[in-house]
Write a protein that binds this DNA or RNA. Structure first.
Length: 200
DNA sequence: TGCTGGATTCACT
DNA sequence: GTGAATCCAGCAC
């Protein structure tokens, strides 16, 4: 039960469903010859249309260009000049949907993660949070536009299935009456996992 | 050509 | 809990 997620996984049109499906999957990076991996425990969905929080909301620019590409690519964005945020581009070409991977549980290459983060020992904060996670895995803007079926960064299915009841969604209150962008944030995390931010 | 603010994190009060 | 650090894309002039 170890395989890279197929191209079809990313080109589906329901970005929220993909966000949930990504929970429990293994995110691998091979940066500078150092293999690192972790289980995805927290994600957030961004919809290219009607979602003001999304960079690519009706704005096609050089930076967001890859979001408009076909699913299965990496979109890496430098935030606050310090933090690299890693996104999985989804949906078909022309639809700028993406899933922000916010946190992982380290499973492989722990020494490298600690080194990159300059941590003396393992703490949940090592990979809890999009900026921290990217730093631990060595994700930088060099990975912008990388194919997730390539050999630098990819996602594998190890047969872990997260039951619907163990997925905590964090929509806004009154979501039933809200329109599309009021659903933000489409944030999903695995219940009880130490590497996600505490549930509120 | 210059200014503004951001999908954050960490240190300090 | 609050604020600073810090780079660049996007927009205004």
């Amino acid at each position: 039960m170890t395989k890279k997620l197929p191209h079809e996984f990313y080109t589906r049109t329901d970005v929220v469903q993909i966000s949930k499906d990504l929970l429990g999957k293994y995110l691998f990076t091979n940066v500078g010859g150092n293999l690192s991996a972790g289980i995805i425990v927290e994600t957030e969905a961004y919809c290219g249309r009607g979602d003001k929080a999304c960079h690519a909301n009706n704005k096609r620019t050089p930076r967001t260009e890859v979001m408009f590409a076909e699913g299965g690519k990496a979109y890496v964005y430098l935030c606050y000049g310090i933090h690299h945020l890693f996104n999985v581009v989804t949906n078909v070409e022309g639809m700028a949907d993406a899933v922000l991977v916010r946190a992982i549980e380290p499973v492989h290459g722990l020494d490298w993660m600690l080194l990159r983060r300059q941590y003396p020992q393992l703490k949940p904060a090592l990979t809890a949070g999009p900026g921290a996670m990217s730093a631990a895995l060595g994700i930088t803007t060099k990975l912008y536009g990388q194919d997730l079926l390539g050999d630098t960064i990819w996602i594998e299915d190890h047969g872990i299935i997260i039951p619907e009841k163990d997925i905590i969604a964090s929509p806004r209150v009154g979501v039933q009456y809200a329109k599309e962008d009021a659903l933000r944030p489409w944030r999903f995390r695995i219940r009880g996992n130490a590497y996600t931010s505490p549930a509120k």
